[in-house]
Design a protein around this nucleic acid. Structure first.
Lengths: 136, 136
DNA sequence: TTAATCCTTATAGTTAACTCTAGGTCAAGT
DNA sequence: ACTTGACCTAGAGTTAACTATAAGGATTAA
């Protein structure tokens, strides 16, 4: 079975080897096997697992919580409920984040047009007596 | 003109007084005036400015870059272009973040249904010979 | 007037997530 | 045989963004 070195995996996932070793030290990769020399041998499935880890990370989940999930995975079927609950919670969190960003977007777009107008006029004074909306 | 104390502002913005003082120290609030005693006196407009700061923060902008923006604001019309560019860049960044989260959401939802199925079956083995899609 | 409750500054400590260095091993190429 | 370069660990250092503490000043309430 083909395996990959840590630098190959780092390149593939756009991480550094430092980061991967750090994840390993934090217990995120108990599944990665080693050569007799100690060198990590990443299987295709290990890379897939790392992609899940990156996915969880991109939801803002801290590494310690991701480790819980990894531990649950090792524990087998008795933790299916926890893992399901965790992903449902992640789903809710990501939904909330998207909503938050959409709200942020509205304000940002308002600012874009505010500055566009000011830029065209050459001065911010053009907005001096705007009706009081949210805030410019 | 009515003013607000640091703790009132903290409550209003869901921040701590520590955080507000930290922002001040980092140069994010040069506009806040002081009483003779040194106590900060926040105006309504200061709170509005802090809301913009919070908005930029929620786009993932680091405090040092937000400070640049605040400095530009103090510099007046000569920095209109920079400020416009900054908000356009923020807009692009937020759009990208939303896209990223939507991709993340797909994987999370896939995992939710994966674990729902496993949970109903009582075992993850139910997925043992799933066709190789992305990754389960 | 005295106690409580604000406020202030300066500075130290914390936490997460890296990021790097030092010192060493190992396998391949010349 | 030896050099090069990729791998390893342990542990130190970095950075951002707080978060807290200490020591003291001002304002209010009894």
């Amino acid at each position: 079975m083909k395996t990959y070195s840590i630098s190959e995996v780092a390149k593939e996932l756009n991480l550094t080897v430092y980061t991967l070793r750090y994840y390993d030290k934090e217990g995120l990769m108990p599944f990665v096997e080693r050569a007799d020399s100690g060198t990590r041998l990443f299987k295709e499935s290990d890379i897939d697992a790392l992609k899940i880890i990156e996915c969880l990370k991109s939801t803002g989940m801290p590494i310690k919580e991701i480790k819980n999930f990894i531990d649950w995975c090792s524990d087998g079927d008795s933790t299916l409920q926890q893992r399901y609950d965790m992903f449902m919670e992640r789903k809710a969190s990501v939904e909330a984040q998207i909503e938050e960003l959409k709200k942020t977007m509205e304000l940002i777009e308002h600012k874009c047009s505010y500055y566009k107008t000011a830029l065209d006029a050459g001065t911010e004074d053009i907005h001096k007596n705007d009706k009081i909306e949210i805030t410019n």
